[in-house]
Design a protein around this nucleic acid. Structure first.
Lengths: 212, 212
DNA sequence: GCAAATTAATGATTTATTCAAG
DNA sequence: CTTGAATAAATCATTAATTTGC
């Protein structure tokens, strides 16, 4: 276990067992005198120094936390802060959507909230802290989301294996009147009337774009 | 039960009963010798091999866990099938949103997927089965979702406690136009244009509408 | 009733993860 | 840091159960 000229401490099984037992029983960050006690106790099972005990507790605490975090984060697919979850949600809401750069990303799809510089401008209210990726829904077939400094556009790539788009509402009901959500100025209103009166196309595959 | 030239093991009812009893009594992952014992015991009820026993415990344990997880996940807020979760998600994505009839609903906000008759039209693909509420995003401030046979409209009720809306992307932009949800006839369009031409007030609570 | 067609259940395999040992 | 065993998760594949249209 412990080579003669070894440069680092090799704890004996007994030492490890005792340390773990102490940790479990509540000693997470022993103070100087505790460390001294522990060291002298453990020295009857093998060579050991106070600094070894100190480091052991440091490392053990950190690694336990790490394990816990990893375990939790795997169970939390469905947490809004989880980028994979967001991707999943998007794909549910818009079944034939694709995160266009998702699978090309070197890292898993990044969680993107507000940019650092913007965050620093004391606009740190609760909403921001939630760190939910910004997103803009464009229409029923496309949306955008912050991706690094850029916007990632997601578009309906057309009929997929799951065939028809889920908008049977649009196809089976008589056209509804458009509700005005907000009062418009006369000028913008006129523009709208003239520009958006074309009927909705059936299901043309759209183009994928990543904005600069 | 077990065809002559069958390629896979078909346990007899007695074998299954005994295996389940063993599982309930605490045997979850039998070791090699336990598997041997069990196998020789069960062989008096029908043809069986050790690997069958091994696989049975593997699968049974996994599927019991699966059942349990599914049960749990239905109680979880962050599951896409949970209507409360959807409300929550919406409120994150659009912080000052309100499900306008949410708190008035006799039942918790209903989960609404495709209607039965539509589902039966052999469009029974995986996507439909997910039973995700239909929703239509209108713009960055409003959206609609199926609510029973009707559509529930959600609108931005203006600046909330969290002060500024998270759309700093949009705030640096010129005022948004109202989007046309559905194609309009010329007549209804004109009516809308003339009736709603006042400028948008600063932070007036908006009106809630449920379409017929 | 029955037989083809679907759907669900579950046996068997493969793949991924974890964790300890060197 | 790598390796290998253990085992959990995901998946494939076959059989049982059921629905459906005569």
């Amino acid at each position: 276990m412990s080579p003669a000229g070894s440069t680092r401490w090799c704890p004996t099984p007994e030492q490890v067992m005792i340390l773990e037992e102490m940790y479990r029983s509540g000693i997470k960050t022993p103070n100087a005198s505790q460390i001294q006690q522990i060291t002298s106790h453990l020295s009857s099972y093998g060579k050991i120094e106070a600094k070894n005990v100190f480091y052991w507790f440091q490392n053990h605490k950190a690694r336990e936390r790490q394990k816990l975090r990893r375990k939790l984060s795997k169970q939390q697919l469905y947490h809004p802060n989880n980028p994979r979850f967001l991707h999943y949600f998007d794909s549910l809401a818009f079944p034939s959507f694709q995160h266009l750069s998702y699978y090309n990303s070197p890292t898993p799809f990044p969680r993107v909230g507000v940019r650092e510089d913007a965050a620093k401008q004391q606009v740190m209210n609760y909403t921001w802290k939630l760190d939910v990726p910004e997103r803009a829904d464009i229409d029923d077939k496309s949306m955008m989301r912050m991706h690094g400094g850029d916007w990632l556009m997601m578009v309906d790539v057309g009929p997929s294996l799951s065939s028809s788009s889920p908008c049977y509402y649009f196809t089976t009901r008589p056209p509804l009147k458009t509700l005005e959500l907000f009062p418009l100025t006369a000028s913008t209103l006129k523009k709208e009337c003239s520009s958006n009166s074309s009927p909705r196309p059936l299901s043309p595959p759209k183009v994928a774009l990543t904005l600069p």
